[in-house]
């Protein structure tokens, strides 16, 4: 049974999206500019993972959207 997300959880999710966004861009820089092929390839592969993570995090906000109260509780 799904419960509403806490304010703290929402903040962690938002911070996590910033982290993933930064990692995605950093990996993009390495994937395009590194001369070492092994490093280049590893970072290229990681881009997909970070994209998936962002998607998962955004979806978790979406899933809890309807349950969120419009008035402060207690």
């Amino acid at each position: 049974m799904m419960q509403p997300m806490s304010a703290k959880e929402l903040e962690y999710i938002v911070d996590s999206i910033s982290n993933e966004d930064l990692l995605l861009k950093q990996c993009g820089v390495v994937a395009t500019s590194a001369t070492n092929q092994a490093i280049k390839q590893t970072c290229h592969q990681m881009i997909n993972m970070h994209q998936q993570h962002i998607q998962t995090l955004v979806q978790s906000i979406q899933q809890h959207q309807q349950m969120a109260p419009s008035q402060p509780q207690n």
């Binding site: 419960q3 806490s6 996590s16 490093i39 970072c43 990681m46």
Partner: peptide
């Protein structure tokens, strides 16, 4: 360049672990 990514991955692992321990919603 690789080290900056590695350092950030380390930091993010810690943040995710902290977030997991402080979550009340099971999902």
């Amino acid at each position: 360049m690789a080290y900056t990514v590695l350092a950030d991955l380390k930091r993010v692992v810690r943040e995710y672990a902290t977030a997991a321990t402080e979550s009340s919603c099971q999902q």
